[in-house]
Simulated assay, not measured.
Amino acid sequence: MKLIPVDNAPAVVVCNTCRFSKEERDDPAGRRGGALLFDALVAARADDPAFADVAVQAMPCLFACTEFCTVHLRGPGKVGYVMGRFAADAEAARAILEYAAHFAASDTGQVPFKQWPAGVKGHFITRTPPEGYVVE
């Protein structure tokens, strides 16, 4: 394993080796769902300046293998989230980035439920404390 430095800023880290769906590892063209979701996130971010404060990064395997199309939302001093079970498409990418923009603008990473895009509801897997903290 080799660690690759990235900016310590709000980011959506995509598992680019994630399954395409619960039933299928790859799409009909042989691409993994995580790779397709990464491409959709990069395209959505490029199309909307509202997402400029959130980086999109990829890495192999977030170890959420019982799920599919998983992402880790993280930022310095913020509670992080692992979300999954997304379709590998533009609609899911936009919902993830909309949530991530609210996350980036927050002090602690907590986003009020009324600001959650419908496309992320039901997709949360874990919540992770920021380095050096726990949540009360």
Rank of each mutant, 00 (worst) to 15 (best):
K2G: 11
K2H: 11
I4H: 12
P5L: 08
D7Q: 10
N8Y: 05
A9L: 09
V12Y: 09
V13H: 02
V13D: 01
V14W: 07
V14F: 05
N16M: 07
C18D: 12
R19P: 02
F20L: 10
K22G: 15
K22H: 15
K22N: 14
E23F: 06
E24V: 04
R25A: 11
D26L: 08
D26E: 06
D27C: 08
G30A: 11
G30V: 11
R32P: 00
A35R: 03
L36R: 13
V42A: 14
A43Q: 14
D47H: 07
D47E: 14
D47C: 05
A50Y: 07
F51Q: 12
F51G: 13
A52K: 14
D53L: 06
A55R: 08
A55T: 02
V56A: 10
A58K: 13
M59G: 13
C61R: 12
C61P: 08
C65E: 11
C65V: 12
C65G: 11
T66V: 12
T66D: 13
E67G: 06
F68V: 01
F68E: 02
F68N: 05
F68S: 01
C69L: 10
C69I: 10
V71R: 01
H72C: 03
L73M: 00
L73C: 02
P76N: 03
P76D: 04
P76K: 05
G77R: 11
V79I: 15
G80D: 06
G84M: 09
F86Y: 13
A90L: 05
A92M: 04
R94W: 04
R94Y: 01
R94E: 13
A95V: 03
I96K: 02
I96V: 15
E98Q: 15
E98G: 07
Y99Q: 02
Y99N: 03
Y99H: 15
Y99V: 01
A100P: 00
A101F: 04
A101Q: 07
A104C: 10
A104I: 06
S106T: 08
S106W: 08
Q110S: 05
V111W: 03
P112R: 08
F113P: 04
F113D: 08
K114M: 09
K114D: 14
W116Y: 14
A118C: 02
G119V: 10
G119I: 10
H123A: 05
F124D: 01
F124T: 07
F124S: 04
I125Y: 12
T126D: 11
P130E: 09
E131K: 07
G132R: 05
G132Q: 06
Y133G: 02
E136C: 04
